[in-house]
């Protein structure tokens, strides 16, 4: 089979003598070092497989949960053009979730298993989506900052060593190029607008700035997966490198808008030619990740509701397909 029914999650390595395993691993690493891609049926270390399943499914879950904060404004989008844009954007996120689930399924885990892990809280998703969207400006800020940060994270993933993940990311990055632009355009309109609109924009920046910086994950000293992931070329840059890059490109954009970045320590460093920025509240990051952010329960509840209230529909479709195939 092409994608399913692979030997259960890397078990195959367990039965091998140590020497043979070492040889396989050396061969595997040599392929990676030579920038060759790994494809679904190729031998891979169990830990590589597990790391990818964890990362790709988290990524997929983030897309799916990420539909909710923005979906909150679909019905209230302030013009028909904006309504079409936000529907198309949230739809894209669903599509990206689908591409990513599809990539993860090539590793021998089913979509149902992954969804189960999400709904029972075993699987994580990007903590940014546990923040609320109380105003329309949040839709602008999410596009500008959250999608901006996501793109920075995702572009290197297009060269990831695992073929199906890299291919999904190429497709995703291509499609996401409009997401950040539409967000920034919303911010421009607000900042050119009335006092109330400008205040809305500033408040949204205040809400989303620090959570966006947290999107790049723990600082390098505390990132437990970074070293191995870089050796495997699942990851190409460290969390701190990407975070710095994000700050460097985003601060001038905030200046263009005439908004103030909520960080007193933010200053341009002539020597390093980067911005210095204040310390990130990692306690908050850990808290939100552990399930105690502003909207964790609401987000998961919404996913559970959709899953449970759709169960009879999915069952009926299966029952009907079974009848149809009997009639053939």
């Amino acid at each position: 089979m092409y994608t399913q029914g692979l030997d259960a999650l890397g078990d195959e390595s367990l039965h091998l003598p140590e020497e043979e395993l070492a040889e396989l691993e050396a061969h595997f690493q040599a392929k990676i070092d030579a920038d060759e891609k790994i494809e679904p049926k190729d031998w891979m270390p169990a830990a590589y497989r597990m790391t990818l399943i964890r990362q790709i499914s988290q990524h997929a879950h983030s897309e799916i949960v990420g539909m909710l904060p923005e979906g909150n404004w679909i019905s209230r989008a302030p013009s028909l053009k904006r309504k079409c844009v936000i529907i198309a954007k949230v739809q894209d996120e669903g599509g990206h979730g689908a591409y990513l689930y599809s990539a993860a399924e090539t590793l021998g885990i089913s979509r149902e298993q992954m969804i189960e892990q999400l709904l029972t809280g075993q699987a994580k998703y990007s903590s940014i989506f546990n923040y609320p969207t109380p105003s329309w400006a949040d839709i602008g800020a999410i596009g500008w900052l959250v999608d901006g940060a996501a793109i920075m994270n995702q572009i290197p993933l297009c060269r990831c060593s695992y073929g199906p993940y890299a291919r999904a990311m190429v497709r995703i990055c291509k499609e996401e190029s409009f997401h950040q632009r539409q967000g920034f355009e919303i911010m421009i309109r607000l900042c050119e607008g009335s006092t109330a609109q400008k205040r809305m924009a500033q408040e949204a920046l205040d809400r989303w700035w620090w959570p966006s910086l947290m999107m790049f994950g723990p600082d390098d000293a505390n990132s437990k997966h970074t070293g191995q992931s870089m050796r495997w070329k699942i990851k190409r840059f460290t969390n701190d490198e990407l975070r710095q890059k994000f700050v460097d490109v985003t601060v001038p954009q905030a200046e263009f808008l005439g908004l103030e970045v909520p960080d007193d320590a933010l200053v341009w460093n002539e020597e390093t030619e980067h911005y210095n920025f204040g310390p990130i509240d990692w306690d908050e990051f850990q808290r939100v990740l552990a399930g105690h952010g502003p909207c964790n329960q609401e987000r998961i509840r919404a996913r559970i509701d959709a899953h449970e209230s759709g169960a009879w529909v999915r069952e009926a479709a299966l029952a009907n397909a079974a009848k149809q195939s009997k009639n053939l």
């Binding site: 994608t3 399913q4 599809s102 990539a103 399924e105 291919r167 999904a168 497709r171 299966l318």
Partner: peptide, 30 residues
């Protein structure tokens, strides 16, 4: 298989003259 929608692979012909190319998968009942 009975409980869950099975997996399908998807191939797209981008335009006439090109071959169908694998793009990914999805779930459906038939």
């Amino acid at each position: 298989e009975r409980q869950h929608w099975p997996l399908f692979e998807v191939f797209i012909r981008a335009r006439a003259g090109l071959e169908h190319k694998h793009v990914g998968s999805l779930h459906a009942v038939d």
